[in-house]
């Protein structure tokens, strides 16, 4: 029985187990972004709703407060804008 050919550079661990968990940080999905969330610090009340809803965990916190969006991973989905009760986030066309 011929052995399965291991494709070049592919990890084929038994049962597709990945031994380096969290390796999705290497995949910078920020490049997918067409619209960019612009955060208005004056209107922001730090309620953390945007932080909670962001599906990519691209809104970081520091000392219990949200800081600028991590654009390495923000895909520009706009969920933060939709959920923000205070209109503190607007979506603008990404400048390439």
């Amino acid at each position: 029985m011929p052995k399965a050919k291991k494709p070049e550079g592919k990890l084929l661990n038994l049962g597709a187990v990945i031994l380096t968990p969290g390796n999705s940080v290497q995949n910078k999905t920020g490049g997918w972004r067409a619209l960019r969330p612009v955060w208005n610090k004056e209107k922001c009340t730090q309620c953390m709703i945007c932080w909670m809803y962001c599906p990519d965990m691209a809104i970081p916190q520091k000392d219990g407060k949200r800081i600028e969006t991590n654009f390495d991973f923000c895909k520009g989905c706009g969920i933060c804008k939709t959920e923000c009760v205070f209109g503190a986030i607007t979506m603008e066309k990404e400048k390439k």
Partner: peptide, 13 residues
């Protein structure tokens, strides 16, 4: 798709 089939081949082997 670039790895799925390889895993199935492993099962068959």
């Amino acid at each position: 798709p670039d790895v799925f089939m390889d895993f199935k081949k492993q099962q068959q082997d």
